[in-house]
């Protein structure tokens, strides 16, 4: 019994003592997108090894989750930087401002392509965005222009040039930024090309978005979880299936999987970099200006991220699968980090 009461009081004391530990922080805290995560962690590691500062802590919370944490306020208990695989929304800027986070520095990091890939055991697929929409949308316009549940079961039902295999696409769940970008770029891009839907877009934008952004739920599209690696492994096992994932996974597994041509363009490093490949997006991170100078190392971290050795054409981020921006864009954002220019929407 004595032992028990002793250890109880020691534990209670310990909790009280540690409660005061939150006051100081000498380590950068970063949250946000799982797509930017592999790049941000590579920079953080190099920064930690070369600068003498502690290695920043990076959480993979998703773009939306990261911005939510980021906008919660100014102070050591809130993160300093958030990564995003899309641009910050004006609603998020307002939310930030309401919580006192008024000065934000925006840094564009580079580009990421979204790949529709399959196993090398099968042929390369050549699709248009329109065909992607027709294959994966929940509802498509029928012969009379009215919306009908997607009737296509085989790729060849859409167009005879496509293979006569079952439509089976593995992709990320709705919480993923990759899914957001895929829906916006490929599905919406394809829907715009269909006359009936293009007209709908002019008359009722909301209704158009509802159609363009809804992915079918009848088993042709399989939500395979946030883990892109898992999708890649499943593709290997099933040569008839296609998967949707980030370019870096294609880059690392080029011996086993291949990317489909979208609109006649292959998802290669060069095609994504010069904007030819249609399904690519920009990656960003956002810095809380009020924390610069308070949390040690933020300026140096920014300098490391924006150095040519990191995000340049031959930098280590390119090795990790990031597609660098053109030199003048890099110069622009590097300057923004040096002057800590405020975000302009």
């Amino acid at each position: 019994m004595r032992f028990l009461s002793k250890s109880l009081s020691v534990a209670a004391l310990g909790v009280v003592a540690f409660a005061g530990a939150a006051e100081a922080r000498d380590q950068i805290q970063i949250v946000g997108s799982s797509t930017v995560f592999p790049f941000a962690t590579a920079v953080a590691e190099t920064f930690g090894k070369t600068s003498g500062f502690k290695t920043p802590v990076i959480e993979s919370t998703g773009s939306g989750g990261g911005l939510k944490l980021f906008c919660e306020g100014v102070g050591v208990q809130h993160p300093d930087i958030t990564n995003a695989s899309r641009r910050i929304k004006s609603s998020e800027v307002e939310r930030c401002a309401k919580n006192g986070v008024t000065d934000i520095v925006e840094v564009k990091v580079g580009y990421d392509g979204i790949v529709i890939g399959n196993s090398k055991a099968s042929n390369v697929l050549e699709v248009s965005k329109e065909q992607i929409f027709l294959a994966l949308a929940k509802e498509i316009p029928g012969a009379d222009g009215k919306l009908i549940p997607n009737p296509h079961t085989k790729w060849s039902d859409i167009d005879s040039s496509l293979p006569a295999t079952k439509i089976e696409v593995l992709g990320p769940p709705p919480t993923s930024g990759t899914r957001d970008a895929f829906v916006e770029l490929a599905m919406e891009g394809g829907a715009k090309k269909i006359k009936v839907l293009a007209d709908l877009r002019k008359s009722d934008k909301k209704a158009f978005k509802a159609v363009a952004h809804s992915i079918r739920e009848d088993g042709a599209f399989v939500e395979a979880g946030e883990n892109d690696n898992l999708i890649v492994q499943k593709l290997e096992a099933n040569p008839n299936a296609f998967g949707i994932f980030g370019f870096s996974f294609l880059d690392q597994n080029s011996d086993k999987i291949q990317g489909s041509k979208v609109g006649g363009t292959e998802p290669t490093f060069e095609n994504i970099a010069d904007g030819k490949y249609g399904v690519s997006r920009s990656l960003y991170f956002y810095v809380k200006k009020a924390h610069v100078g308070v949390i040690p190392g933020i300026e140096e971290y920014l300098a490391e991220f924006t150095s040519e050795g990191a995000w340049g054409d031959d930098g280590y981020l390119a090795d990790k699968g990031l597609i660098p921006m053109p030199a003048e864009e890099r110069a622009k954002y590097k300057k923004a980090t040096e002057t800590l220019a405020n975000l302009t929407m």
Binding site: F18, Q27, A40, T41, G48, T55, V57
Partner: peptide
């Protein structure tokens, strides 16, 4: 609570990330 994170440094105590 933020423990699913990339942390390169080996923690030195229970309050280190």
């Amino acid at each position: 609570i933020g423990m699913v994170a990339f942390i390169a440094d080996i923690p030195g105590g229970p309050t280190d990330p």
